[in-house]
């Protein structure tokens, strides 16, 4: 028997208007992955659960208007309560959890479902795959969270009428920005964990509910957390007594933005680099 080593002329480098000598341009490839990932995320059971988790404050707002408002301590305003919901419920718990469950699954779902082969055998850079999926995560979670925050804001702050609400609207916009930053920062971190670890959820939970408690310590240690920077960006903090201590120390806004920006860039860049170099077929 002999080997057949027939040769053939090279195919044209450009077919159907595409340059086949290089991968599909990054923005175009990322957009195609984004569309595909968004379709999968929007109609997933995970999104249903997250919609409930992220929309829970709306139910709380309705309950507050009907039952709790009359029992609020005299020093605490409805706006303070809204601040509590934003800082403690969304920024500290619900959004990091949402980021954990979405971002660690960006690649893990494809590996577990064994669909990653379809993505990795297309003429696209791997970075575009991860970037497109990250964008889909961000849009999905932002669409679930931002309307819920706005509705909660108005439900809680208009309990005793609309007086003074207008003056608080800039704070609402700031909160919406912090919500997006939270999704970005934790999303980037958990995306990195997702490409690094085979089972990232438990380490992620430990990070959120053990390591992030460091933010409550005095000194420089809180600067090693993500949450310390995020909670410092919340302008409307509860009064000095009562709930104030759970917000920990306040870091300068410029430092927070710089630190969060750096974290997002570094975590995402590291995730892209690892994903580009890794063989995922082995895990099948």
């Amino acid at each position: 028997m002999s080997a057949s080593a027939a040769a053939r002329p090279p195919a044209p480098e450009s077919t159907a208007g595409r340059d086949t000598s290089r991968p599909v341009p990054f923005p175009r490839a990322a957009r195609a992955v984004f569309d595909l990932a968004l379709e999968g995320m929007v109609w997933s059971r995970r999104s249903l659960l997250m919609a409930i988790l992220l929309g829970l404050p709306i139910a709380f707002g309705l309950l507050f208007r009907g039952v709790i408002v009359s029992r609020l301590p005299p020093r605490m305003t409805a706006f303070d309560l809204y601040g509590f919901v934003i800082a403690i419920y969304y920024i500290r718990n619900a959004l990091p959890l949402a980021a954990l469950f979405y971002a660690t699954a960006l690649i893990a779902d494809e590996v577990d479902g064994r669909t990653i082969t379809y993505l990795l055998t297309r003429p696209v850079r791997r970075g575009a795959i991860l970037f497109g999926k990250f964008a889909a995560y961000l849009v999905t979670t932002a669409c679930l969270t931002l309307p819920a925050v706005v509705i909660t804001f108005f439900l809680l702050t208009t309990t005793r009428g609309w007086t003074g609400v207008g003056a608080r609207v800039p704070d609402l916009f700031r909160d919406l920005g912090v919500v997006v930053l939270t999704l970005l920062a934790y999303g980037a971190f958990f995306t990195l964990m997702g490409v690094l670890l085979r089972r990232p959820v438990i380490p992620g939970l430990l990070f959120l509910f053990v390591w992030e408690l460091v933010a409550n310590l005095p000194g420089y240690m809180p600067r090693l957390t993500i949450t310390a920077y995020l909670r410092s960006l919340i302008r409307h903090r509860p009064p000095d007594e009562g709930l104030a201590e759970i917000f920990g120390q306040v870091l300068p806004t410029a430092l927070c933005l710089e630190a969060l920006g750096a974290m997002i860039v570094v975590f995402l860049a590291a995730a892209l680099w690892i994903f580009a170099a890794r063989e995922y077929v082995l895990e099948q």
Partner: peptide, 26 residues
């Protein structure tokens, strides 16, 4: 590929369209 794995919620047409977009076609 050998594995019997798909994005199960997509229709046959959507599946092909998604992968063709990823191949750079208009």
């Amino acid at each position: 590929p050998e594995p019997d794995a798909f994005w199960e919620n997509l229709t046959g047409q959507q599946f092909l369209m998604a992968l063709l977009r990823l191949t750079g076609f208009e």
